[in-house]
Amino acid sequence: MKNVKTEFAERLQMAMLAAGYDPKPAVLEREFNQRYYGKPMTLHGVRRWLLGQVTPPNDKIAVLAEWLKIPPHELSFGAELPKQIEQRRKEWEVSISYQEREVFEAFLNLPAEQKKIVREVILAFKRSLR
């Protein structure tokens, strides 16, 4: 089973290939450090990204994504995540009725303290149904 770091490494390698770069540490180190204004990455550091041992922090992912011309979230999480989120949103919108939607909108317009009370009541009902 793959982990998050391994999957990131695969996406990074594929993005490099798609952008016309050899997915080698020396290439990654050179190209990244030309674009990043913080402390430069070492060859060892970028090799760990490519091997799936470490994932870079968000500021470095943003630089990688800009260089490779892909959305940062796609580099971090893959292209499937936005599709899954959109699918769940569509399922949600289809599954609720007009009356439920009206209740949700009324809830969203309540002051924070009243929202807290309504939330507690709903959660109490949920617990009682177990």
Rank of each mutant, 00 (worst) to 15 (best):
K90R: 11
V118S: 12
P111V: 08
A106S: 14
I61E: 00
F107G: 07
A18H: 09
A18I: 07
V118H: 08
L68T: 00
W92E: 08
R30G: 03
I70F: 02
P111D: 15
K115H: 07
L123G: 09
P82N: 08
P40D: 00
T42H: 04
A18Q: 14
A79H: 14
S95T: 07
M16T: 00
Q53K: 08
L43P: 03
M41Y: 08
S128K: 13
L68V: 02
I85N: 08
R127T: 12
F104D: 06
I117M: 06
S97E: 06
Q99Y: 06
E91W: 06
N109R: 15
Q99P: 04
I61F: 03
L123E: 15
L108M: 15
E80R: 12
A19D: 08
G20E: 08
A124T: 13
K39W: 05
L51V: 01
K24M: 12
T55F: 00
L68N: 02
L64V: 00
P71A: 13
E113Q: 06
L64N: 03
P111E: 15
I70Y: 01
R35M: 04
F32P: 07
R88F: 13
R30W: 05
P72F: 01
A124D: 13
A19L: 07
E102H: 11
E120T: 10
R30H: 08
L81N: 05
G20L: 06
P40R: 05
E113W: 02
P72V: 01
P72Q: 03
W67D: 02
P40N: 03
E93D: 11
V27R: 00
V46E: 05
E91L: 15
P72R: 02
S76V: 06
K126A: 12
P82K: 06
S76Q: 13
A112H: 07
V121D: 09
L64R: 00
F125H: 14
K115A: 06
R47E: 09
A26C: 01
W67M: 09
K116M: 09
V54N: 01
Y98I: 14
W67N: 02
G20C: 12
E100T: 15
W49I: 00
V94E: 11
W49N: 01
L50I: 00
M16K: 00
A26P: 00
F104P: 05
N58G: 12
I61R: 00
F77H: 13
G38V: 05
K126Q: 14
G20T: 09
A26L: 03
Q87M: 14
E31S: 01
L17V: 14
E113M: 03
G38I: 01
V103A: 14
V94S: 10
L50P: 02
F32G: 11
I122P: 04
G45D: 02
I70D: 02
F32N: 04
R30Q: 06
R35Q: 07
I85Y: 07
E80D: 15
P57D: 10
L75G: 02
P25W: 00
D59N: 07
W92L: 14
V63T: 11
